[in-house]
Design a protein around this nucleic acid. Structure first.
Length: 647
RNA sequence: GCUGAUGUAGCUCAGGGGUAGAGCACUUCCUUGGUAAGGAAGAGGUCAUGGGUUCAAUUCCCAUCAUCAGCUCCA
């Protein structure tokens, strides 16, 4: 008998050689139905693999990442089997599961290609194979036999993969007529795969190296239920409708010009308004937390970045130096604000009593991103960081982190981001020489971050080895309204720049000390943040932030004069209001202004003019009845105050 | 940067070796209306840019630029 320990520390005894599936069945019928894979002492196994000694186990179902991994990985094998059936002689590369589905890299051979139009053929072959309920059988083979198998099959990519593997045994998985080299784990059989959609075809270099041959990558996704696939496809459609490039154009927020240059966004009046409102909001919050605004130029001497180390590390990713014609001095478009801020710190002697010094700037920086990387507002060559640098004593790190977390929470609330993850990135304890700074400092800073996160009750994941070389960091990821994750703000400790710029402060003991620097940007960049906000809200911004809050729509031109009166009144009450005095019927005005996503539409006609009223229509919700003009203005101000947590 | 696709009116797109097309938006006129598209007329384009082939190129070929997808990268 062997002892099996469950996650709740419960222990049961089973016969040696029992499988995960048999254990699941012994617990409940429902579990046996849902389970997809099992962790055995932390390693993920097939449900059919015998367990021969005491073990801690955990079952994985669809709702955890490991369960999905087994499902999609098995689906990749099924797709490979279908591809071999439809395209005989196809050579296979790798076929992993990814965050949403799976892919397989294939080489169709000279003169053959596959396009989106060919995917349904492969899909139906997969469905046919899935129905055969073939089990995924694991088999350990010696390396030599593995090589022999793929040599006979004539699959050069697999041979290369096996050759690179350590000597010893290699696991093979077979389902139906298909055998693949694979670590596993896999589903019990193919019938689990009920809904299949192949999504796209793209090129990808063998092993991600552009010097290698380009293979064809086929992307797909599968689900245990048809309904789940249907929902997923609806979500993809939704994502398309929310695409910030599309919405940004429709709402006239920003544009690009081939003549200005790629990756250089032009903010249109409405987008600029939105950005200004965001910036003012953050400035106001930061002022409460003791930040001071500074302003620095867009260029700096090359020497500045040599000192900071950015030139050596990122020189090739910067715009090339500008030379002055007379002196031949070299200047860089600034890729970072921190070196400038270090020089501001150095502009006068600092005492321990002055710390922390908190310097904020909406600093525009320029980076030469590779042309293929540019994407809407999320990846651009010129962007504005909501940057700030906190210069503090080592013992102040934790408190400063707590304050930054508070600021980030304020933002999340004001913008209705409800779902987030905070990632704490620490150094790799086995690879300490990669990092600058003393052990003592690192331990202090890492402890400070973890404690700050705990005190604030953050929903945290810790990643070892993800820290920057100059210090640990805390990153915030939000989940948007349709469940996609976006990386946003970051807080980073930096021991490097204070060292390089020789920053100092005078201690109480009349000795000089080195301050610690904290970089932080709650939005990340204005460009990227606005993009995320557009995709999160689908362009329906919160009332306090939206460029146009109210539009007045007279029933006919006879009421345009009253419309102007209402317009003046609301604008004078600091409510951003437009008047739609076009010669159009009310239905048309409603439609057009709904499409512009203006939160409140006011209809005015004879009744309203007579009683100093407005008839209120809320975006997406329809008629709300009429209100006095004063009453409406108060109502709007109240709504905004609520959103900004000011009451 | 690499591979592939795309580039036609402000927007969304059709077309095709020989006067350039639609819908929406825009302008003017008619209409003056009560909660998601009233009607009519008009204006608008070096068909991304530069070369080449051709009697003739927006269309075919080459290059460049930009956009999109994927790969690689991201202080």
């Amino acid at each position: 008998m062997i002892k099996i320990t469950f996650p709740d520390k419960n222990v049961r005894e089973y016969n040696e050689g029992i499988t995960g599936m048999e254990i699941a069945k012994s617990i409940s019928h429902g579990l046996a139905n849902d389970v997809l894979a099992v962790s055995v002492n932390g390693e993920i196994w097939d449900l059919s693999r015998p367990i021969n000694s005491d073990a801690e186990i955990k079952f994985h179902k669809w709702d955890d990442a490991e369960g999905k991994h087994a499902f999609w990985h098995s689906s990749a094998h099924l797709m490979a089997e279908a591809l071999e059936a439809v395209y005989p002689g196809v050579k296979l590369g790798i076929g992993p599961s990814i965050e949403n589905g799976f892919y397989y890299d294939i080489d169709l051979g000279e003169g053959r290609s596959i396009s989106d139009a060919d995917l349904p053929k492969v899909e139906s072959k997969m469905a046919e194979l899935a129905k055969t309920k073939s089990s995924y059988n694991r088999r350990d083979v010696p390396k030599s036999e593995a090589l022999k198998y793929f040599t006979e099959k004539g699959d050069p990519y697999k041979i290369e993969l096996i050759t690179d593997l350590a000597d010893g045994t290699i696991s093979f998985y077979t389902q139906g007529n298909f055998t693949d080299l694979c670590r596993g784990p896999h589903l019990p059989d193919t019938s689990y795969i009920k809904a299949i959609k192949l999504l796209s075809v793209a090129g990808a270099y063998w092993r991600g190296n552009e010097k290698n041959k380009q293979l064809t990558r086929v992307y797909g996704i599968t689900f245990p239920k048809q309904k789940m696939l249907d929902d997923y496809l609806v979500m993809l459609e939704q994502a398309k409708l929310r695409d910030h490039r599309k919405v940004g154009k429709e709402l006239e927020l920003f544009t690009f010009s081939q003549k200005v240059g790629q990756g250089l966004p032009l903010w249109l009046p409405k987008g600029a308004k939105l950005r200004e409102l965001l910036e003012n909001f953050l400035k106001k919050v930061q002022k409460e937390y003791g930040y001071e605004q500074v302003i620095t130029p867009h260029i700096g001497q090359k020497e500045l970045y040599v000192t900071s180390g950015h030139y050596e590390k990122y020189g090739k990713d910067s715009f090339q130096p500008i030379r002055t014609p007379q002196e031949g001095e070299e200047f860089l478009l600034k890729p970072m604000n921190c070196p400038h801020h270090c020089e501001i710190y150095k502009s006068k002697p600092r005492s321990y009593k002055d710390l922390p010094v908190r310097m904020a700037e909406f600093g525009t920086v320029y980076r030469y991103e590779q042309s293929g990387e540019l994407h809407g507002l999320t990846r651009v060559r010129g962007f504005t960081q909501d940057d700030a640098h906190l210069f503090c004593r080592p013992d102040q790190i934790k408190e400063e982190f707590i304050k930054v977390i508070d600021i980030i929470f304020r933002i999340f609330k004001a913008l209705d981001f409800k779902d987030y993850i905070a990632q704490v990135s620490l150094r790799d304890p086995n690879n300490k020489e990669k990092y600058i700074g003393s052990d003592e400092n690192w331990e202090k800073a890492e402890r400070a971050i973890i404690e700050a996160a705990q005190e604030k009750g953050l929903n945290t994941v810790v990643e070892l080895g993800e820290a920057a070389f100059y210090g640990p960091k805390l990153d915030f990821m939000i989940k948007d309204a349709i469940g996609r994750k976006w990386q946003l703000g970051t807080i980073q400790v930096d021991y490097n720049l204070p060292e390089r710029f020789d920053l100092e402060y005078m201690g109480a003991d009349n000795q000089k000390y080195r301050p610690v620097m904290i970089h932080r940007a709650p939005f990340g960049s204005m460009e990227r943040f606005v993009a995320v906000l557009i995709e999160h809200t689908a362009g329906k911004f919160p009332l306090w932030l939206t460029p146009d809050q109210v539009v007045i729509m007279p029933i006919s031109e006879k009421f345009n004069d009253y419309g102007k009166k209402v317009l003046n009144f609301l604008n004078n009450s600091d409510i951003r209001t437009l008047l739609d005095d076009r010669n159009e019927k009310i239905g048309k005005k409603i439609r057009d202004n709904e499409l512009k996503k203006i939160p409140y539409l006011l209809i005015i006609g004879e009744k309203e003019e007579a009683g100093e009223l407005v008839s209120v229509r809320k975006q997406g919700e329809g008629d709300k009845g009429s209100m006095g003009l004063n009453e409406f203005a108060e109502f709007i101000k109240n709504e905004i105050a609520k959103q900004l947590q000011e009451i």
